[in-house]
């Protein structure tokens, strides 16, 4: 073991006694109670359904649409991509919201 290894071991083995503040547990419990008192969230069925429908319509539009009739406007495929991204985002947000509000 080199002298540096010894230095490292000594520094990291040393017990640092960090005491939580007197109200630490009270603060944790207050936040927890606040979280539990939130009204239960309903399953975001309509948001997920709308997202899925948007995805499906846009995939179909994207696959079957004509080529772009006017170059300065977004063509059906570009539109489909944008809307598909929007649909995915709606689903993702709804899922994250559900996960964050999960309780034991």
């Amino acid at each position: 073991m080199t002298s540096f290894d010894r230095l490292l071991d000594d520094a990291l083995k040393a017990r640092e006694s960090i005491e939580p503040g007197a109200y630490f547990s009270k603060r944790v419990m207050a936040r927890l109670r606040g979280e539990v008192e939130l009204p239960p969230i309903a399953f975001p069925f309509w948001r997920i359904a709308a997202g899925l429908a948007s995805l499906a319509i846009c995939i179909i539009a994207g696959l079957t649409g004509d080529s772009n009739p006017a170059p300065f406007l977004p063509g059906p495929r570009a539109f489909a991509l944008i809307a598909a991204a929007g649909g995915s985002l709606v689903i993702a947000v709804a899922t994250i919201e559900l996960r964050q509000r999960r309780r034991p």
Partner: peptide, 9 residues
């Protein structure tokens, strides 16, 4: 929380 606050902090 009481039992584990010190180790976690």
């Amino acid at each position: 929380v009481h039992r584990w606050q010190r180790p976690l902090v």
